[in-house]
Simulated assay, not measured.
Amino acid sequence: MDYITAFWLALVQGITEFLPVSSQAHLVLAGQWIGEVYQGLEFDVILHAGSLVAVVTYFRKEVFSMARDWFSTLAGGEKTKDSKLAWWVIIGTIPAGVLGILLKDAAEVILRSEVVMGFALIIFGIFLGLADWKGSRNRDEYSLGLKDVLIIGFAQALALIPGTSRSGITMTAALFLGLNRESAARFSFLLSIPIIAAAGLLLTLDLLRNGSNMSWDILLVGFVVAVISTYACIHYFLAFIKRIGMQPFVIYRIVLGGLLLWYFL
């Protein structure tokens, strides 16, 4: 892999990781377009690390407050809205984590195709549009209850289907539950932290077993680009949906999914 390839793949990852448009589908398409069908395990690890650093840095105040209050409650301290939110992030991660471990290999073998991605982009894009249109948008992430969190958590597990979009499906579930757009996005982003960390850890363990042949300078380019582009994407996405909503992403998903089906069917 050369520097230009590393730059573009990291940029695609950073821009699409937290948009409701499926980063996996875009990475596959970008890889085919530039002739780098699979970027390698070590590059996967570094892109996950970049995304994780970006989201934790952006929400550093929230993450610090949640972690501080959560550890305080473990020591018998008073429960707060931030400690409760921390518990909801942990509990909401469990369904996707368990099902991901059990079904990941089967899902990649059975479902990993451009046709499946095309259908998933369209179908779950329509659901996102309905949620954005029908949702009451009168709640924030601190109003979530256990039932709400489990619904969002199991929805996140649907991201095993390529083209679904982890952020897209969790925002869809949150919007259907009545969260406003910014709160749905914020909870989706916070919920991504343990999932991305766990995925990065598993990839790292695989990497340690298999070894690495990629040069450190290529990995550094990927990491830096992923951090910067992911951070910028989160910032501008939150501002964008506050003014305009999810419908542009719905249209984009349907058009992209249609193009995939037209080309590969």
Rank of each mutant, 00 (worst) to 15 (best):
S72I: 12
L99M: 15
I152L: 01
E62Y: 10
S65K: 11
L146N: 13
T164W: 01
L128G: 03
A86M: 08
I123A: 10
I90V: 12
Q156R: 03
K79S: 13
I152K: 02
G92Q: 08
A174H: 12
A131L: 07
P95N: 07
F71E: 01
L175R: 07
R112S: 08
F127Q: 11
L179K: 02
D69F: 00
A75H: 11
L144W: 09
Q156W: 09
G153N: 12
E108N: 08
T80R: 09
M117T: 12
A120W: 11
R166A: 11
L99P: 02
F119H: 05
P162A: 09
D105F: 08
L130P: 02
A131H: 13
I152M: 02
V116T: 15
F59N: 09
E182I: 10
D140F: 01
L146E: 10
R166Q: 15
L111M: 10
V115R: 15
I161D: 04
F124A: 09
S65R: 11
A107F: 11
I151N: 02
D69K: 00
G76K: 14
G77V: 05
T170Y: 12
S136Y: 12
V98G: 06
W70A: 14
L85C: 03
A67F: 12
A96V: 03
K147P: 10
G77C: 11
L130W: 03
K84F: 07
L144I: 03
Q156S: 06
R166E: 14
I91W: 15
I151P: 00
F176Y: 13
G77F: 13
S65Y: 04
A159K: 06
M66P: 03
A106F: 12
I91Q: 11
S65G: 10
